[in-house]
Design a protein around this nucleic acid. Structure first.
Lengths: 290, 290
DNA sequence: CCCGGGAGG
DNA sequence: CCCTCCCGG
């Protein structure tokens, strides 16, 4: 009875996520249970461009295929829209969903239930946004580690630089002021240009950019790249690192150490579109001894 | 036989400049000869918007009326076009004319013959202009004082800020590198926003903004003001100080001290247009003892 | 969601 | 020659 089900058949999406011929088994049986005391944390961060009406079904299927393949502990999505979200919720029964708004487009935090225990969530408004942007926060426990997870879609477009930097300062403030016993990880579509971060004097003490911590690997630098991605039909080749992860360590306890960062969603679908105009970030981190 | 004479009758313009019933006397008799050893210098600087085709005749007449009234020693004009220039040359027989180009729109320096002796002139190209802009320079002697006079119409529009600032730096360089025994005065349509000058670190040592030297009088701040001037039919009220005079003193000899700066062309013509979308600047300065 | 150019206010 | 919006590249 959901409107989206009138345009999307559920089965191919289910299959994309759970795998072929899996309609007959329950969710809990379909994938091996992860070790809930593993010290590894897997995060996906992706602006899925839910506002683009082109071939939504195929793109959603592609997205579910990736999410089902990696089964990340934490999935941070931007530009979710209600029909898109409904589909994910219908299929991804093994995740708990948080969303930053009920209407328009918004962000979401998806928590893998068997790995992450949600303790508290919070939505913080940006007071001067002109695009309805906000900061979504989840306090969770994973393998016994207290973790504060944040996502946001900062003000878009070059022209909104000032507002975007206001929002970035606010994000950093929330990261710094999170409980000191929590590790804090932010992932989102920051729409940042490198010169904007420089303009703020660089990252604040205690907050690091995960991509920089990994030695600035060239192959995962540009998350928005019109030299490859033609979803937006932009003839110019422009490459920007819009999507970023920031990390603040807990004052004590295990440090969270980035291990790998790769881009996903790089393959073109049969419909000749990419899943999104952004690549997704797949990041693994390890809780180690301090 | 000039094309402009087919659309403009010369007599009303002559009358506007020289005064009523003056067609029967020669130019040299029409106005009292200024004292050629006066220490006062009068400068008019005005973007006359020669590109605006509306009511050119009435606007040219209004311009000549002002130029005839003040009979400035130096008149710096921007957005001259050939027909407009021809009319001025036909009427203002008491001035020597320099122009920065022969075609399109360009700047001009008009020197009152009985007060100013032209020694040398120079046209400096801006290498990267996309609007054909340049710097027009005249070395002159006035009351025995060596003077370097410059005018320009810097790159227009907010979007061309970078090129405009390149040009401004070049102007300042030429002002600084003019012969040290010359006083240097630049007047022009700079299209500058205050934040652009700040961005360059403010005015260089040794170069001053005449309006600032006069204590930043509010009534002569905005030379382009759509809250009053509707020549361009811009519904928003926007006021900018586009037109500026810069001064560099000679290393020795009399210092040139600004005395007054007023805006002219503030009255609406019968045709319901202003003379230009810019106000003119009328400035008096005095050579004093150092 | 890049950039630039053109129209309308 | 302001600004914003829209469109095409």
């Amino acid at each position: 009875s959901k409107p989206t089900q009138t345009i999307m058949s559920s089965f191919p999406l289910h299959q994309a996520y759970w795998g072929k011929s899996s309609m007959d088994v329950s969710a809990s049986e379909q994938k091996p249970q992860s070790c809930s005391t593993s010290n590894q944390l897997t995060v996906i961060c992706w602006n899925i461009d839910g506002l683009d009406p082109e071939d939504v079904f195929a793109r959603c299927k592609g997205l579910l295929s990736h999410l089902g393949k990696y089964r990340a502990d934490v999935v941070l999505l931007q530009e979710l829209v209600p029909p898109y979200l409904s589909q994910l919720q219908n299929i991804m029964k093994d995740y708990e969903f948080l969303q930053s708004s009920q209407e328009g487009y918004f962000t979401g935090i998806l928590l893998r239930k068997d790995r992450v225990q949600l303790l508290e969530s919070n939505i913080v408004k940006y007071p001067t946004t002109e695009m309805g942007r906000n900061l979504l926060i989840a306090k969770v426990s994973i393998s016994g580690h207290p973790l504060c997870i944040m996502t946001s879609h900062l003000e878009s477009c070059k022209a909104s630089s000032q507002e975007r930097l206001n929002q970035l300062r606010r994000v950093w403030k929330w990261m710094k002021e999170a409980p000191q016993d929590h590790t804090v990880i932010f992932g989102g579509d920051t729409n940042l240009r490198d010169w904007e971060v420089k303009k703020l004097g660089g990252l604040p003490d205690g907050i690091n950019d995960v991509w920089e911590m990994l030695g600035e690997p060239e192959e995962s630098r540009y998350t928005w790249d019109t030299s490859i991605n033609d979803n937006n039909e932009i003839p110019n080749s422009i490459r920007l690192r819009f999507d970023r992860l920031f990390l603040r360590q807990a004052a004590e306890g295990a440090r969270l150490q980035p291990e790998t960062m790769t881009l996903i969603g790089l393959e073109k679908l049969k419909c000749d579109y990419f899943i999104s105009d952004h690549w997704g970030i797949l990041c693994t981190l390890l809780f180690g001894s301090a």
